[in-house]
Design a protein around this nucleic acid. Structure first.
Lengths: 125, 125
DNA sequence: TCAACACTTCATGAGTAATTGAAACGATGG
DNA sequence: CCATCGTTTCAATTACTCATGAAGTGTTGA
């Protein structure tokens, strides 16, 4: 992952609705991995189902899904009259890898906090 | 780290200039760790020095540093007539931890890509 | 082919972020 | 105490993002 892609992904994730969508899609669909169990469970989630879960209008959802897709974080696939969205797990992992190894240059302190849950006494904004 | 904090941090990082500042500050100052070598090297970077490195005006830099500070990603300390900024390594680590474990619920696929560098054949935006 | 369905795109308006230059603030040295 | 340097704050402009509802696109079944 390069910097422009990472910036897109960060901007896409810096939004409550889109973060909620990512949460919904994690574990609800793989992109060709060997962990596939059943077609239905691995297909991702239809746009309508997502809209219901996050309680937003169809057009608003489409806007946010488009932002996530532009950033490469989700992929869309049409099945009949529905469009299924699934998380691009590799892109998420790639972003985290980028933050950790490119931006933070593999800094040991960051890695340690990343594994242990971050700052114990972090102040609120 | 909770969601509002993570959203602030993501928004702060979703900017080329601020990402560049983070890069500059990584490894240039610890916040009380045991890895301290010398005062001068661990003090962080003065605002003027950062402005020179990233080639932006003083006021613009102040704006961006403020955004990073609000997000808890950097900390400021005045020394004489200069203000030194250093990265909050724990906040960076905490953000990455949040992405990995809260958003992605510790998903194995994401973790694997995160350690190995992400998508091998990721398409460009 | 026509109506219904699922979703996307478009047009519009409101809110928020980024940039710029000027002015203000705080610390230092003469 | 005054001039100066380093940095921050302010005001104004521009650009972008978000939200809303209406219109449009593609798919299915009668």
């Amino acid at each position: 992952m390069d910097q422009p892609q990472a910036l897109d992904a960060l901007a896409a994730l810096a939004n409550e609705t889109r973060l909620q969508i990512v949460r919904l899609l994690v574990g609800r669909g793989h992109d060709g991995g060997c962990l596939r169990h059943s077609e239905a469970e691995d297909a991702g989630l239809a746009a309508g189902a997502i809209a219901q879960e996050v309680s937003i209008s169809a057009s608003r959802l489409s806007f946010h899904l488009n932002a996530l897709e532009q950033a490469g974080l989700v992929a869309a696939e049409r099945r009949g009259r529905q469009v299924f969205y699934r998380l691009e797990h590799r892109a998420m992992g790639g972003l985290i890898h980028y933050l950790l190894n490119d931006c933070c240059q593999g800094n040991a302190e960051v890695s340690a906090c990343c594994q242990q849950g971050g700052a114990p006494q972090m102040r609120r904004a």
